[in-house]
Design a protein around this nucleic acid. Sequence first.
DNA 1: ACAGGCTCTTAATCTTTCATTAACCATTTT
DNA 2: AAAATGGTTAATGAAAGATTAAGAGCCTGT
Lengths: 225, 225
Amino acid sequence: MVEDEESLGYLLSEYLGMKGFQVTWAKDGEEALELMEKGNFDLAILDVMMPRMDGFALAERMRINAMELPFLFLTARSLKIDVLKGFALGAVDYLKKPIDEEELVVRIHTLLSRLIPEDRSMEQEILVLGQYQLDCKNQKLIFEDDFTTLTTREMELLRILAINKNNLCTHKEILIKLWGDNDYFNRKSLNVFITRLRNYLKKDDTLKIENVHGKGFILRIPNIA
Amino acid sequence: MVEDEESLGYLLSEYLGMKGFQVTWAKDGEEALELMEKGNFDLAILDVMMPRMDGFALAERMRINAMELPFLFLTARSLKIDVLKGFALGAVDYLKKPIDEEELVVRIHTLLSRLIPEDRSMEQEILVLGQYQLDCKNQKLIFEDDFTTLTTREMELLRILAINKNNLCTHKEILIKLWGDNDYFNRKSLNVFITRLRNYLKKDDTLKIENVHGKGFILRIPNIA
DNA sequence: ACAGGCTCTTAATCTTTCATTAACCATTTT
DNA sequence: AAAATGGTTAATGAAAGATTAAGAGCCTGT
Protein backbone atom coordinates (compact mmCIF):
# COMPACT_ATOMS: atom_id res chain seq x y z
CA MET A 1 0.00 0.00 0.00
CA VAL A 2 1.32 3.39 -0.99
CA GLU A 3 -0.36 6.15 1.00
CA ASP A 4 1.16 9.42 2.15
CA GLU A 5 -1.53 10.31 4.61
CA GLU A 6 -0.63 9.10 8.10
CA SER A 7 -4.10 8.57 9.47
CA LEU A 8 -5.62 6.80 6.49
CA GLY A 9 -2.48 4.77 5.96
CA TYR A 10 -2.42 3.62 9.53
CA LEU A 11 -6.10 2.82 9.56
CA LEU A 12 -5.99 0.81 6.35
CA SER A 13 -2.82 -1.13 7.06
CA GLU A 14 -4.11 -2.07 10.50
CA TYR A 15 -7.48 -3.06 9.12
CA LEU A 16 -6.09 -5.08 6.23
CA GLY A 17 -3.60 -6.73 8.57
CA MET A 18 -6.47 -7.66 10.85
CA LYS A 19 -8.22 -9.18 7.86
CA GLY A 20 -5.32 -11.53 7.26
CA PHE A 21 -3.41 -9.69 4.57
CA GLN A 22 0.29 -9.13 4.87
CA VAL A 23 0.57 -5.42 4.28
CA THR A 24 3.62 -3.28 3.67
CA TRP A 25 3.00 0.45 3.87
CA ALA A 26 5.16 2.78 1.80
CA LYS A 27 4.68 6.49 2.45
CA ASP A 28 5.79 7.74 -0.92
CA GLY A 29 6.51 6.58 -4.43
CA GLU A 30 10.28 6.32 -4.00
CA GLU A 31 9.96 4.08 -0.99
CA ALA A 32 7.38 2.00 -2.82
CA LEU A 33 9.65 1.45 -5.81
CA GLU A 34 12.50 0.37 -3.57
CA LEU A 35 10.31 -2.13 -1.76
CA MET A 36 8.87 -3.49 -4.97
CA GLU A 37 12.36 -4.19 -6.26
CA LYS A 38 12.48 -7.09 -3.86
CA GLY A 39 9.46 -8.32 -5.64
CA ASN A 40 7.41 -10.44 -3.35
CA PHE A 41 4.07 -8.70 -3.60
CA ASP A 42 0.75 -9.82 -5.03
CA LEU A 43 -1.05 -6.50 -5.38
CA ALA A 44 -0.28 -2.80 -4.99
CA ILE A 45 -2.77 -0.26 -3.65
CA LEU A 46 -1.85 3.20 -4.83
CA ASP A 47 -3.22 6.48 -3.60
CA VAL A 48 -3.53 8.84 -6.54
CA MET A 49 -3.03 12.12 -4.75
CA MET A 50 0.36 12.20 -3.17
CA PRO A 51 2.68 15.19 -2.94
CA ARG A 52 6.01 14.09 -4.47
CA MET A 53 5.12 11.43 -6.99
CA ASP A 54 1.44 10.84 -7.54
CA GLY A 55 -0.14 7.44 -8.04
CA PHE A 56 -0.35 7.77 -11.80
CA ALA A 57 3.31 8.69 -12.07
CA LEU A 58 4.17 5.80 -9.79
CA ALA A 59 2.24 3.37 -11.95
CA GLU A 60 4.11 4.70 -14.96
CA ARG A 61 7.43 4.18 -13.22
CA MET A 62 6.39 0.68 -12.22
CA ARG A 63 5.75 -0.10 -15.85
CA ILE A 64 9.07 1.39 -16.90
CA ASN A 65 10.86 -0.76 -14.33
CA ALA A 66 9.03 -3.77 -15.74
CA MET A 67 7.34 -4.62 -12.47
CA GLU A 68 4.62 -7.02 -13.30
CA LEU A 69 2.61 -6.21 -10.23
CA PRO A 70 -1.14 -5.67 -10.48
CA PHE A 71 -2.29 -2.45 -8.90
CA LEU A 72 -5.45 -0.59 -8.03
CA PHE A 73 -6.02 3.09 -7.37
CA LEU A 74 -7.59 4.77 -4.39
CA THR A 75 -8.70 8.31 -4.95
CA ALA A 76 -10.91 11.19 -4.06
CA ARG A 77 -10.65 12.45 -7.62
CA SER A 78 -13.53 10.66 -9.25
CA LEU A 79 -13.38 12.72 -12.37
CA LYS A 80 -14.14 10.55 -15.34
CA ILE A 81 -10.89 11.45 -17.04
CA ASP A 82 -8.96 10.18 -14.03
CA VAL A 83 -10.81 6.90 -13.90
CA LEU A 84 -10.11 6.32 -17.57
CA LYS A 85 -6.48 7.31 -17.14
CA GLY A 86 -6.20 4.90 -14.25
CA PHE A 87 -7.42 1.96 -16.26
CA ALA A 88 -5.39 3.02 -19.27
CA LEU A 89 -2.30 2.73 -17.09
CA GLY A 90 -3.25 -0.85 -16.42
CA ALA A 91 -5.07 -0.66 -13.12
CA VAL A 92 -7.13 -3.68 -12.17
CA ASP A 93 -9.57 -1.56 -10.17
CA TYR A 94 -10.28 2.05 -9.30
CA LEU A 95 -11.85 2.90 -5.95
CA LYS A 96 -13.27 6.27 -5.05
CA LYS A 97 -12.85 7.78 -1.62
CA PRO A 98 -14.24 7.76 0.97
CA ILE A 99 -13.03 4.19 1.14
CA ASP A 100 -15.26 1.66 2.76
CA GLU A 101 -12.86 -0.78 4.37
CA GLU A 102 -15.12 -3.76 4.05
CA GLU A 103 -15.72 -3.11 0.41
CA LEU A 104 -12.00 -2.71 -0.14
CA VAL A 105 -11.40 -6.07 1.49
CA VAL A 106 -13.88 -7.92 -0.68
CA ARG A 107 -12.59 -6.23 -3.80
CA ILE A 108 -9.03 -7.24 -2.94
CA HIS A 109 -10.16 -10.80 -2.36
CA THR A 110 -11.97 -10.84 -5.68
CA LEU A 111 -8.97 -9.48 -7.49
CA LEU A 112 -6.48 -11.81 -5.85
CA SER A 113 -8.58 -14.84 -6.55
CA ARG A 114 -8.58 -13.86 -10.23
CA LEU A 115 -4.94 -12.91 -10.34
CA ILE A 116 -3.09 -15.55 -8.41
CA PRO A 117 -4.22 -18.84 -9.90
CA GLU A 118 -1.55 -18.93 -12.58
CA ASP A 119 -1.01 -22.60 -12.89
CA ARG A 120 1.24 -23.75 -15.69
CA SER A 121 0.83 -27.42 -14.95
CA MET A 122 0.00 -28.39 -18.50
CA GLU A 123 3.31 -27.55 -20.10
CA GLN A 124 4.81 -29.07 -23.16
CA GLU A 125 7.21 -31.86 -22.42
CA ILE A 126 9.65 -31.37 -25.25
CA LEU A 127 10.55 -27.95 -26.55
CA VAL A 128 12.28 -27.45 -29.86
CA LEU A 129 15.11 -24.93 -29.84
CA GLY A 130 16.62 -24.68 -33.28
CA GLN A 131 18.57 -27.90 -33.80
CA TYR A 132 18.23 -28.74 -30.13
CA GLN A 133 15.40 -30.35 -28.23
CA LEU A 134 14.80 -29.76 -24.56
CA ASP A 135 13.27 -32.70 -22.77
CA CYS A 136 11.97 -31.02 -19.63
CA LYS A 137 10.90 -34.08 -17.78
CA ASN A 138 14.22 -35.87 -18.19
CA GLN A 139 16.29 -32.71 -18.09
CA LYS A 140 18.08 -33.61 -21.30
CA LEU A 141 19.27 -31.19 -23.89
CA ILE A 142 19.37 -33.17 -27.09
CA PHE A 143 21.51 -32.32 -30.14
CA GLU A 144 21.41 -34.81 -32.97
CA ASP A 145 22.40 -38.15 -31.45
CA ASP A 146 24.06 -36.59 -28.49
CA PHE A 147 22.68 -35.16 -25.29
CA THR A 148 23.67 -33.30 -22.17
CA THR A 149 21.99 -33.82 -18.85
CA LEU A 150 21.07 -30.48 -17.38
CA THR A 151 20.76 -29.67 -13.72
CA THR A 152 17.36 -28.67 -12.42
CA ARG A 153 18.17 -24.99 -12.37
CA GLU A 154 19.69 -25.06 -15.83
CA MET A 155 16.64 -26.79 -17.22
CA GLU A 156 14.15 -24.50 -15.53
CA LEU A 157 15.96 -21.42 -16.72
CA LEU A 158 16.21 -22.66 -20.26
CA ARG A 159 12.59 -23.70 -20.13
CA ILE A 160 11.43 -20.22 -19.15
CA LEU A 161 13.53 -18.66 -21.88
CA ALA A 162 12.24 -21.21 -24.37
CA ILE A 163 8.60 -20.77 -23.50
CA ASN A 164 9.03 -17.04 -24.06
CA LYS A 165 11.32 -17.39 -27.05
CA ASN A 166 12.05 -14.14 -28.87
CA ASN A 167 10.47 -12.31 -25.97
CA LEU A 168 12.00 -10.61 -23.03
CA CYS A 169 12.14 -12.48 -19.74
CA THR A 170 12.87 -9.96 -17.04
CA HIS A 171 15.35 -10.68 -14.28
CA LYS A 172 12.61 -10.19 -11.81
CA GLU A 173 10.31 -12.66 -13.49
CA ILE A 174 13.04 -15.29 -13.70
CA LEU A 175 14.35 -14.77 -10.21
CA ILE A 176 10.95 -14.84 -8.62
CA LYS A 177 10.02 -17.99 -10.49
CA LEU A 178 13.26 -19.91 -9.92
CA TRP A 179 14.75 -18.45 -6.78
CA GLY A 180 11.65 -16.97 -5.16
CA ASP A 181 13.56 -13.81 -4.38
CA ASN A 182 15.14 -11.02 -6.36
CA ASP A 183 18.35 -9.94 -4.68
CA TYR A 184 21.94 -9.13 -5.55
CA PHE A 185 23.33 -12.61 -5.07
CA ASN A 186 20.65 -14.53 -6.87
CA ARG A 187 21.10 -12.14 -9.71
CA LYS A 188 24.79 -13.02 -9.81
CA SER A 189 23.87 -16.68 -9.83
CA LEU A 190 21.57 -16.05 -12.74
CA ASN A 191 24.51 -14.65 -14.69
CA VAL A 192 26.50 -17.78 -14.06
CA PHE A 193 23.67 -19.91 -15.38
CA ILE A 194 23.26 -17.76 -18.44
CA THR A 195 26.91 -18.30 -19.23
CA ARG A 196 26.46 -22.06 -18.85
CA LEU A 197 23.44 -22.14 -21.12
CA ARG A 198 25.28 -20.11 -23.73
CA ASN A 199 27.96 -22.73 -23.69
CA TYR A 200 25.51 -25.59 -24.05
CA LEU A 201 23.75 -23.85 -26.92
CA LYS A 202 26.70 -22.89 -29.05
CA LYS A 203 26.51 -25.86 -31.35
CA ASP A 204 23.66 -24.08 -33.14
CA ASP A 205 24.92 -20.61 -33.86
CA THR A 206 21.52 -19.28 -34.86
CA LEU A 207 20.53 -19.49 -31.19
CA LYS A 208 21.43 -16.53 -29.07
CA ILE A 209 20.71 -15.53 -25.51
CA GLU A 210 20.58 -11.76 -25.77
CA ASN A 211 20.78 -9.41 -22.87
CA VAL A 212 18.61 -6.31 -22.62
CA HIS A 213 20.57 -4.07 -20.35
CA GLY A 214 18.95 -3.60 -16.98
CA LYS A 215 15.89 -5.60 -18.00
CA GLY A 216 16.54 -9.26 -18.65
CA PHE A 217 17.24 -11.83 -21.36
CA ILE A 218 15.80 -12.98 -24.65
CA LEU A 219 16.37 -16.38 -26.17
CA ARG A 220 16.45 -15.62 -29.84
CA ILE A 221 15.41 -18.42 -32.14
CA PRO A 222 15.06 -17.42 -35.79
CA ASN A 223 11.63 -18.20 -37.18
CA ILE A 224 11.94 -20.34 -40.27
CA ALA A 225 9.16 -20.00 -42.81
CA MET B 1 -26.81 -7.80 -20.08
CA VAL B 2 -29.81 -8.21 -17.87
CA GLU B 3 -31.72 -4.96 -17.48
CA ASP B 4 -35.46 -4.47 -17.09
CA GLU B 5 -35.49 -0.77 -17.73
CA GLU B 6 -36.16 -0.04 -21.40
CA SER B 7 -34.29 3.22 -21.75
CA LEU B 8 -31.13 2.26 -19.89
CA GLY B 9 -31.07 -1.15 -21.50
CA TYR B 10 -31.34 0.29 -24.95
CA LEU B 11 -28.75 2.93 -24.28
CA LEU B 12 -26.22 0.51 -22.87
CA SER B 13 -26.61 -2.25 -25.41
CA GLU B 14 -26.28 0.28 -28.20
CA TYR B 15 -23.26 1.88 -26.64
CA LEU B 16 -21.50 -1.39 -25.88
CA GLY B 17 -22.28 -2.67 -29.35
CA MET B 18 -20.79 0.49 -30.77
CA LYS B 19 -17.68 -0.20 -28.71
CA GLY B 20 -17.20 -3.54 -30.37
CA PHE B 21 -18.81 -5.88 -27.86
CA GLN B 22 -21.34 -8.43 -28.88
CA VAL B 23 -24.22 -7.75 -26.51
CA THR B 24 -27.32 -9.76 -25.79
CA TRP B 25 -29.99 -7.97 -23.80
CA ALA B 26 -32.30 -9.97 -21.54
CA LYS B 27 -35.14 -8.06 -19.96
CA ASP B 28 -35.59 -10.24 -16.93
CA GLY B 29 -33.98 -13.06 -14.98
CA GLU B 30 -35.94 -15.89 -16.59
CA GLU B 31 -35.02 -14.81 -20.07
CA ALA B 32 -31.43 -14.38 -18.95
CA LEU B 33 -31.23 -17.92 -17.59
CA GLU B 34 -32.66 -19.37 -20.78
CA LEU B 35 -30.21 -17.47 -22.94
CA MET B 36 -27.28 -18.45 -20.76
CA GLU B 37 -28.24 -22.10 -21.11
CA LYS B 38 -27.43 -22.14 -24.76
CA GLY B 39 -25.33 -19.07 -25.34
CA ASN B 40 -21.61 -18.74 -25.20
CA PHE B 41 -21.01 -15.68 -23.07
CA ASP B 42 -17.89 -14.16 -21.57
CA LEU B 43 -19.41 -11.85 -19.00
CA ALA B 44 -22.84 -11.04 -17.56
CA ILE B 45 -23.92 -7.55 -16.54
CA LEU B 46 -26.74 -7.78 -14.02
CA ASP B 47 -28.97 -4.98 -12.81
CA VAL B 48 -29.71 -5.51 -9.16
CA MET B 49 -33.14 -3.88 -8.97
CA MET B 50 -35.50 -5.75 -11.20
CA PRO B 51 -39.17 -6.51 -10.50
CA ARG B 52 -39.59 -10.29 -10.86
CA MET B 53 -36.21 -11.70 -10.06
CA ASP B 54 -33.59 -9.26 -8.83
CA GLY B 55 -29.92 -9.41 -9.75
CA PHE B 56 -28.89 -11.11 -6.55
CA ALA B 57 -31.47 -13.82 -6.95
CA LEU B 58 -30.38 -14.28 -10.53
CA ALA B 59 -26.75 -14.65 -9.51
CA GLU B 60 -27.84 -17.24 -6.97
CA ARG B 61 -29.71 -19.19 -9.64
CA MET B 62 -26.72 -18.99 -11.94
CA ARG B 63 -24.61 -20.52 -9.22
CA ILE B 64 -27.15 -23.25 -8.62
CA ASN B 65 -27.22 -24.04 -12.31
CA ALA B 66 -23.44 -24.24 -12.24
CA MET B 67 -22.96 -21.57 -14.85
CA GLU B 68 -19.38 -20.56 -14.70
CA LEU B 69 -20.02 -17.17 -16.13
CA PRO B 70 -18.34 -14.16 -14.51
CA PHE B 71 -20.78 -11.39 -13.71
CA LEU B 72 -20.82 -7.85 -12.43
CA PHE B 73 -23.61 -5.86 -10.84
CA LEU B 74 -25.02 -2.51 -11.84
CA THR B 75 -27.03 -0.78 -9.20
CA ALA B 76 -28.37 2.41 -7.73
CA ARG B 77 -28.38 0.80 -4.32
CA SER B 78 -24.91 1.59 -3.15
CA LEU B 79 -25.62 0.52 0.40
CA LYS B 80 -22.59 -1.15 1.83
CA ILE B 81 -24.50 -4.27 2.66
CA ASP B 82 -25.47 -4.64 -0.98
CA VAL B 83 -21.94 -4.20 -2.26
CA LEU B 84 -20.73 -6.87 0.14
CA LYS B 85 -23.57 -9.16 -0.78
CA GLY B 86 -22.75 -8.67 -4.43
CA PHE B 87 -19.15 -9.73 -4.02
CA ALA B 88 -20.12 -12.52 -1.66
CA LEU B 89 -22.23 -13.94 -4.48
CA GLY B 90 -19.11 -14.05 -6.63
CA ALA B 91 -19.33 -10.83 -8.61
CA VAL B 92 -16.16 -9.71 -10.34
CA ASP B 93 -17.17 -6.07 -10.03
CA TYR B 94 -19.87 -3.86 -8.60
CA LEU B 95 -20.74 -0.59 -10.31
CA LYS B 96 -22.88 2.11 -8.80
CA LYS B 97 -25.36 4.08 -10.82
CA PRO B 98 -25.39 6.53 -12.44
CA ILE B 99 -23.31 4.49 -14.83
CA ASP B 100 -20.65 6.24 -16.79
CA GLU B 101 -20.57 4.38 -20.09
CA GLU B 102 -16.91 4.98 -20.77
CA GLU B 103 -15.92 3.75 -17.33
CA LEU B 104 -18.08 0.69 -17.81
CA VAL B 105 -16.29 -0.03 -21.07
CA VAL B 106 -12.81 0.17 -19.58
CA ARG B 107 -13.87 -1.93 -16.60
CA ILE B 108 -15.26 -4.59 -18.90
CA HIS B 109 -12.06 -4.58 -20.90
CA THR B 110 -10.00 -4.89 -17.75
CA LEU B 111 -12.13 -7.75 -16.50
CA LEU B 112 -12.11 -9.61 -19.78
CA SER B 113 -8.38 -9.29 -20.15
CA ARG B 114 -8.00 -10.87 -16.72
CA LEU B 115 -10.61 -13.50 -17.32
CA ILE B 116 -9.65 -14.62 -20.78
CA PRO B 117 -6.19 -16.10 -20.34
CA GLU B 118 -5.12 -16.14 -23.96
CA ASP B 119 -5.18 -12.39 -24.15
CA ARG B 120 -1.53 -11.40 -24.37
CA SER B 121 -2.22 -8.19 -26.23
CA MET B 122 -1.60 -6.13 -23.14
CA GLU B 123 2.08 -7.03 -23.00
CA GLN B 124 2.67 -7.09 -26.72
CA GLU B 125 2.51 -3.40 -27.26
CA ILE B 126 3.72 -2.76 -30.79
CA LEU B 127 3.41 0.75 -32.11
CA VAL B 128 3.58 1.52 -35.78
CA LEU B 129 5.67 4.54 -36.72
CA GLY B 130 5.65 4.99 -40.44
CA GLN B 131 7.81 2.20 -41.83
CA TYR B 132 9.08 1.40 -38.36
CA GLN B 133 7.55 -0.69 -35.61
CA LEU B 134 8.33 -0.17 -31.96
CA ASP B 135 8.18 -3.36 -29.90
CA CYS B 136 7.92 -1.92 -26.43
CA LYS B 137 8.36 -5.05 -24.38
CA ASN B 138 11.49 -6.17 -26.18
CA GLN B 139 12.76 -2.65 -26.70
CA LYS B 140 13.28 -3.23 -30.40
CA LEU B 141 12.88 -0.68 -33.14
CA ILE B 142 12.10 -2.70 -36.24
CA PHE B 143 12.67 -1.53 -39.78
CA GLU B 144 11.95 -4.06 -42.48
CA ASP B 145 13.97 -7.18 -41.58
CA ASP B 146 16.35 -5.31 -39.38
CA PHE B 147 16.09 -4.08 -35.85
CA THR B 148 17.91 -2.00 -33.29
CA THR B 149 17.77 -2.69 -29.60
CA LEU B 150 16.93 0.53 -27.83
CA THR B 151 17.97 1.38 -24.33
CA THR B 152 15.23 1.72 -21.76
CA ARG B 153 15.28 5.49 -21.83
CA GLU B 154 15.29 5.64 -25.60
CA MET B 155 12.36 3.29 -25.80
CA GLU B 156 10.31 5.08 -23.16
CA LEU B 157 10.89 8.43 -24.76
CA LEU B 158 9.97 7.19 -28.22
CA ARG B 159 6.95 5.45 -26.76
CA ILE B 160 5.62 8.65 -25.22
CA LEU B 161 6.16 10.55 -28.44
CA ALA B 162 4.53 7.76 -30.42
CA ILE B 163 1.48 7.51 -28.19
CA ASN B 164 0.98 11.24 -28.62
CA LYS B 165 1.94 11.27 -32.28
CA ASN B 166 1.26 14.57 -34.05
CA ASN B 167 0.59 16.08 -30.65
CA LEU B 168 2.79 18.11 -28.39
CA CYS B 169 4.57 16.37 -25.55
CA THR B 170 5.77 19.03 -23.18
CA HIS B 171 9.20 18.91 -21.65
CA LYS B 172 7.62 18.86 -18.25
CA GLU B 173 5.38 15.92 -19.06
CA ILE B 174 8.25 13.90 -20.48
CA LEU B 175 10.69 14.74 -17.72
CA ILE B 176 8.25 13.93 -14.96
CA LYS B 177 7.32 10.65 -16.57
CA LEU B 178 10.81 9.41 -17.39
CA TRP B 179 13.09 11.16 -14.95
CA GLY B 180 10.60 11.91 -12.18
CA ASP B 181 12.02 15.39 -11.98
CA ASN B 182 12.15 18.46 -14.18
CA ASP B 183 15.49 20.26 -13.84
CA TYR B 184 18.21 21.81 -15.98
CA PHE B 185 20.37 18.71 -16.28
CA ASN B 186 17.63 16.24 -17.06
CA ARG B 187 16.49 18.64 -19.69
CA LYS B 188 19.93 18.54 -21.24
CA SER B 189 19.77 14.76 -21.15
CA LEU B 190 16.45 14.87 -22.91
CA ASN B 191 18.06 16.80 -25.76
CA VAL B 192 20.71 14.13 -26.13
CA PHE B 193 18.05 11.47 -26.39
CA ILE B 194 16.05 13.42 -28.92
CA THR B 195 19.15 13.60 -31.09
CA ARG B 196 19.60 9.85 -30.81
CA LEU B 197 16.01 9.12 -31.73
CA ARG B 198 16.26 11.42 -34.73
CA ASN B 199 19.21 9.35 -35.86
CA TYR B 200 17.41 6.06 -35.42
CA LEU B 201 14.37 7.33 -37.30
CA LYS B 202 16.02 8.81 -40.34
CA LYS B 203 15.49 5.79 -42.55
CA ASP B 204 11.89 6.94 -42.99
CA ASP B 205 12.11 10.59 -43.96
CA THR B 206 8.41 11.21 -43.48
CA LEU B 207 9.00 10.91 -39.73
CA LYS B 208 10.10 14.03 -37.92
CA ILE B 209 10.62 14.95 -34.32
CA GLU B 210 9.75 18.63 -34.26
CA ASN B 211 10.62 21.05 -31.54
CA VAL B 212 8.14 23.63 -30.28
CA HIS B 213 10.34 26.30 -28.84
CA GLY B 214 10.11 26.52 -25.11
CA LYS B 215 7.31 23.96 -25.00
CA GLY B 216 8.33 20.47 -26.03
CA PHE B 217 8.40 18.01 -28.92
CA ILE B 218 6.06 16.52 -31.48
CA LEU B 219 6.62 13.25 -33.32
CA ARG B 220 5.10 13.94 -36.67
CA ILE B 221 3.79 10.93 -38.57
CA PRO B 222 1.89 11.74 -41.76
CA ASN B 223 -1.53 10.17 -41.88
CA ILE B 224 -1.97 8.18 -45.02
CA ALA B 225 -5.43 8.33 -46.56
C1' DA C 1 30.99 -41.05 9.66
C1' DC C 2 33.36 -39.60 5.65
C1' DA C 3 34.84 -39.59 0.82
C1' DG C 4 33.64 -38.27 -3.65
C1' DG C 5 30.62 -36.64 -6.81
C1' DC C 6 27.20 -33.14 -8.05
C1' DT C 7 25.09 -28.74 -7.81
C1' DC C 8 24.60 -24.19 -6.61
C1' DT C 9 26.52 -19.97 -4.63
C1' DT C 10 30.02 -16.60 -3.83
C1' DA C 11 34.10 -14.25 -5.15
C1' DA C 12 37.23 -12.03 -8.04
C1' DT C 13 38.17 -9.90 -12.25
C1' DC C 14 37.45 -8.16 -16.61
C1' DT C 15 34.38 -6.14 -20.29
C1' DT C 16 30.53 -3.68 -21.98
C1' DT C 17 26.80 -0.57 -21.73
C1' DC C 18 24.50 3.55 -21.04
C1' DA C 19 22.92 7.84 -18.74
C1' DT C 20 24.97 11.90 -17.68
C1' DT C 21 27.83 15.81 -18.17
C1' DA C 22 30.52 19.01 -20.64
C1' DA C 23 31.80 21.67 -24.48
C1' DC C 24 30.53 23.99 -28.25
C1' DC C 25 27.63 25.47 -32.05
C1' DA C 26 22.97 26.79 -34.01
C1' DT C 27 18.57 28.74 -33.78
C1' DT C 28 14.91 31.38 -31.91
C1' DT C 29 13.05 34.99 -29.09
C1' DT C 30 13.24 39.39 -26.84
C1' DA D 1 22.70 42.08 -30.34
C1' DA D 2 21.98 39.68 -26.21
C1' DA D 3 19.83 36.01 -23.91
C1' DA D 4 17.58 31.91 -23.86
C1' DT D 5 16.68 27.65 -25.79
C1' DG D 6 17.83 23.76 -28.72
C1' DG D 7 21.16 20.50 -31.20
C1' DT D 8 25.19 17.61 -31.68
C1' DT D 9 29.20 15.12 -30.47
C1' DA D 10 32.32 13.16 -27.39
C1' DA D 11 34.25 11.96 -22.76
C1' DT D 12 33.38 10.03 -18.32
C1' DG D 13 32.24 7.02 -14.63
C1' DA D 14 29.09 4.09 -12.46
C1' DA D 15 26.38 0.17 -13.03
C1' DA D 16 25.43 -4.08 -15.21
C1' DG D 17 26.97 -8.17 -17.39
C1' DA D 18 30.28 -12.04 -18.56
C1' DT D 19 33.46 -15.38 -17.35
C1' DT D 20 36.26 -18.31 -14.67
C1' DA D 21 37.46 -20.29 -10.48
C1' DA D 22 37.02 -21.42 -5.79
C1' DG D 23 34.06 -22.54 -1.90
C1' DA D 24 29.93 -24.54 0.48
C1' DG D 25 26.33 -27.81 0.93
C1' DC D 26 24.18 -31.94 -0.06
C1' DC D 27 23.31 -36.53 -1.32
C1' DT D 28 24.78 -41.38 -1.79
C1' DG D 29 27.27 -45.43 -0.96
C1' DT D 30 30.39 -47.65 1.72
